[in-house]
Amino acid sequence: MDFATAIATTVAAVLTLCIFSFLYKDNPFYKFTEHLVVGVSAGYWVSILYVNVAIPNIWQKLLAGKWWYLIPAFLGVLMWTRIVKRWAWISRYPLAFYLGIATGVAIPLEMQTKVLEQIFGTVQSFVALHNSQTDFWAGINTVVVVIGIITSLVYFFFSKEHKGATGGIAKVGIWTLMIGFGASFGYTVMARISLLIERVQFLIDDWLLKLFS
């Protein structure tokens, strides 16, 4: 391992250990690293937006004679009026423009992707075909999915009290939801464990063993 790599790996390893020290209790090493990552992350996004948005979308457009790109830049500058309390109300204009565009785009788009497409995906023939032959279990699974979705939606419907038949249907819905949450929980645990294994491997294989070999 050359000297530059050794320094870089040691910095990364020390910072990793500082974060792990939180498992014992909150301490100055953890606090130092926590504050460092807040600053570095903010600086990272400043750089990324400068290179990927400010340069191509403002500077290069203006150089190309597209002066109308000054309008969103001017609206953006108006956002800064929030700093001065007396003028803070002016920042509502760019905010209103931004929200208006975002909500206007979201209404048909969310309806299409999150609602209609999901319903289209659900409403399928119960007779499933696999290699031109009827697949019995695939058909059963389709029925289970339909029942699961309907009962889960009934659980989310709070305008009617969950009693009697509605309560029974809602109960099946919450069971379905719990299985879904359990699957997500299992996946999240495995992802975090993988990250933990990777960090420990980094400390042992990439840092300790290479540094002292």
Binding site: T103, M111, I149, G173, T176
Partner: peptide, 26 residues
Amino acid sequence: VPNLAAKRAILIGVGLGIVSTAMKVV
């Protein structure tokens, strides 16, 4: 199967929530 049903139901609920909130804002 059950996870897909749960995720779809949540997604439909989230979609309707976003649309109704967006309409309230507009």
